[in-house]
């Protein structure tokens, strides 16, 4: 079954063709990096306008790269839940039209479920049940994944997402945008022990996260040093900050996995591309007899392939969306059902 996956929930206009939920025939991503750098972040109206300009070209290129024609498409999957409403709307309008005009099934997907499936695409042997940490600029959650498409939320961020903290700290330190890659790079030459930043909620009994206080602590440290005319070792600040975020993410996810007695961990989302996060997870997982899985780097950030893979799974369960499919900017993943 050839599924066209469409993703426009934030700043990437993406489309992909995936065969049977496993084989990626093409995955095209048009980033809005030029606009993001200009505005220092995502501006919803600007992003929605760009999606409208690009969506058709991105879908056409996905078909061309896969060597397929429109008529070969068996179903259309689209991110319709969780994201910027004006952005979700463009992809969903395109998906509904393709589904209607080609007379093939349509399935609306929750954005976070897409990220969960990015790991299944990269690692078909990812076992169930497992604990999944999904972490990006828009969310940070720990989920217990009992089986395919069956999620239980264990913890989430009470304020900023981890990726959002990376973005804000990077912006404040003048390192640029997006924060993840620039901090990852700056931290390479820094000392992780140079600064003692807090590890918020690391010992809390639940699995929730909080990154707002850590972000403020980094910003205050920076301001104090500027006020005292001290030297500003940006790599050290970046490395110490990154270490604090990674420590919390690793510790809580491992704890969740041990509590639920699973043998496998899945780490997904944009932040899962972070090199320090991957290294520390690997070490901690081995120490605790767990196996950790990461998506390939190209599937960490938003893409259409993960949406197609999630859509395939939902379709196989007999779920369909109607042509009245609407977008929902914020809705819990556990509530996800394909029929609406």
């Amino acid at each position: 079954m050839l599924v066209l996956g469409i993703e426009t929930s934030c700043d990437e206009t993406a489309a992909a063709l995936v065969e049977d939920g496993r084989t990626i025939l093409s995955s095209v991503i048009a980033t809005q990096m030029d606009l993001l750098k200009k505005y220092g972040g995502v501006v919803p109206e600007v992003a929605a306008r760009r999606h409208t300009e690009l969506i058709g070209y991105v879908i056409e290129e996905a078909l061309n790269k896969a060597g397929k024609s429109k008529e070969d498409i068996d179903a259309v999957a689209v991110t319709a839940k969780q994201g910027l409403i004006g952005c979700l709307l463009v992809g969903t309008a395109a998906a509904k039209t393709m589904s209607y005009a080609l007379n093939v099934p349509l399935i609306g997907i929750h954005h976070i479920e897409g990220h969960i499936f990015a790991n299944k695409l990269s690692n078909p042997d990812l076992p169930y049940p497992h604990v999944c940490l999904t972490v990006s600029g828009g969310h940070t959650m720990i989920l217990y994944v009992a089986e395919n498409c069956h999620y239980e939320l264990m913890g989430t961020t009470v304020d900023d997402a981890a990726g959002e903290a990376f973005d804000k700290v990077a912006k404040f330190l003048g390192l640029g945008f997006p924060g993840g890659p620039v901090i990852d790079k700056a931290a390479q030459t820094g000392n992780i022990k140079a600064y003692k930043f807090p590890r918020p909620l690391i010992y809390a009994k639940n699995y929730d996260f909080s990154f707002s206080g850590l972000k403020t602590s980094v910003i205050n440290t920076f301001k104090e040093q500027v006020a005292n005319h001290e030297a500003l070792p940006l790599p050290d600040i970046a490395a110490s900050f990154q270490e604090a975020v990674v420590d919390v993410l690793v510790a809580k996810t491992i704890k969740a996995a041990l509590e639920r007695g699973v043998k496998a961990l899945s780490v997904t989302g944009g932040v899962s591309a972070n090199r320090r996060l991957r290294a520390n997870f690997q070490t901690a997982a081995e120490r605790n007899g767990l196996k950790v899985f990461f998506p390939s780097l190209s599937l960490c950030t938003d893409n259409g392939a993960m949406v197609a893979a999630a859509g395939y799974s939902r379709l196989m369960r007999g779920e369909r969306s109607t042509l009245e499919l609407d977008v929902i900017p914020s809705t819990p993943l556990e509530m996800t059902r394909g029929q609406d």
């Binding site: 969506i55 058709g56 879908i59 309008a93 005009a101 080609l102």
Partner: peptide, 13 residues
């Protein structure tokens, strides 16, 4: 945006 996206994809499809 809804109308234009639907229009262009109708023509394309």
């Amino acid at each position: 945006r809804v109308g234009v996206t639907v229009g262009k994809m109708l023509a394309y499809a």
